[in-house]
């Protein structure tokens, strides 16, 4: 009897999880359709990111000319790979953030925001679906960018520990879901300028996380903030795994902060998002704009 009841509960749980996964997939499929229909925009962003990454990485390639010093090929390679990783992760973070916040902005613009928010979908499923597509999208664009970079610069990656790099990317992506969820609040609450406000979060991450330079060059008080940015650990972990071939075990000092950031930021993001949604419903902000 007890066994039968347990089986029924397990079946109901599985069925509920499958239903939620189907709802989450709605956001992935919809964003894929939108990406296909707005292919020209996509082409513009890919081009922009690649040109931007090339411009930054050429700084490394020209380090000798800029400084008037002689750099060994190994040292130049290290500098080029350092910036190439920085630009790649910056593209990844930017695409994820843009995708999550623009989803809300676009829904407001099209007026579909009311229909999405009155559908029987939990916010966890909503944000999971939205962020899952954002991560896949970011990953694909970053891969394209790295391929093009490879054609411009000779990068010696023979020591790279790719498995460890993947672990760092996965651990870091959990935190990005949390931060993306928090940034999505801005276009929900601020009908016209929310998307622009979300750029501030991105800009701060760019400044404090060591995207193009080690965080040790920052003033001491700014370095405090560097240590709470998950991007700092992502970048450090990726550089150590790709440039120095460090293993997962050796990268643990970067992995555990990323996991803690993820464990804290995802529930925190959802909590804040739910509170912001209630506020929006009390004040009438969930509506079309445009």
């Amino acid at each position: 009897m007890l066994q039968a009841r347990g089986l029924a509960v397990a079946r109901a749980t599985l069925s509920g999880a499958r239903a939620e996964a189907g709802k989450g997939y709605a956001f992935i499929e919809r964003n894929w359709y939108l990406t296909k229909r707005y292919w020209a925009w996509e082409a513009v962003w890919v081009t922009y990111n690649i040109v931007n990454a090339l411009s930054v990485t050429f700084i490394a390639a020209s380090a000798g000319q800029i400084s008037g010093q002689r750099f060994s090929p190994a040292l130049l390679n290290q500098f080029v790979v350092y910036l190439a990783i920085g630009t790649a992760i910056w593209t990844y973070i930017s695409v994820v953030f843009d995708q999550v916040t623009e989803t809300v902005t676009m829904e407001r613009w099209e007026g579909t925001i009311e229909y999405t928010f009155m559908a029987p979908v939990s916010r966890l499923t909503h944000m999971f679906g939205t962020c899952a597509f954002a991560l896949l999208h970011g990953f694909a664009l970053t891969a394209v960018q790295l391929l093009v970079m490879g054609a411009f610069f000779h990068m010696d990656l023979s020591h790279a520990a790719w498995g460890a790099a993947v672990v760092i990317m996965l651990a870091g992506s959990i935190s990005l879901i949390g931060l993306g969820t928090i940034s999505a609040i801005l276009p929900m609450l601020f009908t016209e300028r929310g998307a622009q406000m979300a750029y501030i979060i991105r800009a701060i991450i760019l400044l404090i996380s060591g995207v193009y330079y080690p965080i040790t060059v920052l003033p001491g008080w700014l370095q405090v903030f560097s240590h709470i940015s998950p991007a700092t650990y992502m970048l450090e972990g990726l550089r150590l795994s790709i440039q120095q071939g460090k293993s997962v075990v050796a990268l643990w000092p970067d992995i555990w902060p990323l996991l803690i950031c993820g464990v804290v930021s995802v529930p925190l993001g959802l909590y804040i998002f739910n509170r912001a949604e209630r506020f929006a419903k009390r004040t009438g902000r969930l509506k079309r704009n445009g």
């Binding site: 189907g22 919809r30 359709y33 939108l34 229909r37 099209e110 229909y115 559908a119 079309r288």
Partner: peptide, 17 residues
């Protein structure tokens, strides 16, 4: 209110899911 670049099928499929 729809995603205007998407087709009726794509919009309605999203809603159905």
């Amino acid at each position: 209110a729809f995603f205007r670049k998407l087709s009726p099928m794509e919009n309605l499929l999203y809603s159905a899911r």
